[in-house]
């Protein structure tokens, strides 16, 4: 089980972004983390996976526990080795490598893995990737790239997959397909999934429990079926219509962020 207790995160030592986030992901569950742009969803995922370090962010209070031991403060590589794999937003493929090379790298942390079998598993979930396996990943369509980054994470046999906005900017048909595969993967491989989404309708439909974030805090949580009827959530749906302009603003910002690599 993954458990966040009152997690506070600051960037560059001063910008307080998470103001005490608590949430839980039961083994084998699919849990949604909803909220508008800038609420702190990505920051929450990065706090869990440890990737916060590369962005000069830090957990300054609270704790993150996985299977009873604390993982906040660990290196992202160590956390990944424990089975927590983040699929970052924006379909981060290794652009000049081909599809299969991307997948192979995803499986490198598994000791004594049966690479062929693992590739076949991914190709079974995403048959499209098999026919594209020698294509340069940077030139794939958005949907194909999303499949690739998810397949790459599957190669690591994660215990928990942290999925950041998998549906962003994709056609509804592909979104459905991707959500179906998440459900199937969860059922067949027993991988827990913590999924961050703007597409609340889709996310609520496949998850058992959801959290809604605003301004660095969890403001609402409950079983997804109940939240779907909630008035505030309906209002939250309305917020979605402005997605377009906000998205481009955020991408500009994302590009300018200072990074520290190591």
């Amino acid at each position: 089980m993954l458990k966040l207790n009152n997690v506070e995160v600051k960037y560059v030592g001063v910008i307080l972004v998470l103001r005490g986030v608590s949430l839980e992901v039961r083994d084998g569950a699919i849990v949604a983390l909803l909220g508008s742009n800038g609420a702190g969803k990505t920051t929450t995922l990065k706090a869990i996976s440890g990737l916060l370090h590369t962005e000069l962010g830090e957990v300054t209070a609270g704790s993150i526990e996985y299977d009873g031991s604390r993982i906040d403060g660990m290196d992202p590589e160590q956390i990944a080795k424990r089975g927590i794999i983040q699929v970052m937003e924006g379909r981060q493929v290794l652009g000049h490598l081909n599809v299969e090379e991307n997948l192979l790298l995803g499986g490198y942390i598994v000791k004594n893995s049966d690479i062929k079998k693992d590739l076949d598993m991914v190709y079974d979930y995403f048959p499209k990737l098999k026919s594209l396996r020698h294509s340069t990943s940077g030139y794939l369509s958005g949907g194909e790239q999303q499949m690739l980054v998810m397949g790459r994470a599957m190669m690591a046999h994660p215990k928990i997959m942290l999925l950041d906005e998998p549906s962003l900017g994709l056609a509804p048909l592909i979104v459905d397909e991707i959500f179906d595969i998440v459900t199937r993967f969860n059922a067949e491989e027993k991988t827990s999934v913590l999924i961050v989404e703007q597409n609340a309708r889709a996310a609520l439909s496949i998850t058992e429990y959801s959290y809604v974030m605003e301004n660095g805090r969890v403001v609402l949580d409950g079983p997804s079926s109940k939240l779907a009827d909630n008035e505030d959530i309906k209002e939250f749906y309305l917020g979605l219509s402005k997605l377009g302009e906000k998205k481009s603003y955020r991408q500009v910002k994302h590009y300018k962020r200072r990074k520290r690599w190591l």
Partner: peptide
């Protein structure tokens, strides 16, 4: 291609 991506896959 990208340090952060590699770290997200557990590669040092």
């Amino acid at each position: 291609e990208g340090h952060e991506i590699m770290q997200s896959m557990g590669i040092s």
